[in-house]
Amino acid sequence: MDEHWLLIAALAAGTLSIRLAGAWAGQAIPAHGPLARALDALPGCLIVALVATSMLTGGWREWAAGAIAAAAAVATRSVPATMAVGIAAIWALRHMV
């Protein structure tokens, strides 16, 4: 068995362990109280942290396109529409400005 299959097996086993540990922890957390409130707030916090990390690597064009995408998100509440506006905005800013 060559090294590349071992790399795949190690990353696959580690990643599945992380996913299963999360699923188990989610079931183990009580339905009410501070931990439950934290878990309810977690998705939104994780998503804005995700957006923040991707904006960090960008310059003013990415920030401007992000603001345009946010306006599109508020106006349309649609994921595909926001993606289309965001791609169009960043393409125009990178190629025309």
Partner: peptide
Amino acid sequence: TAAFIAIA
């Protein structure tokens, strides 16, 4: 990034 802004 745009998709996650919409999802947020």
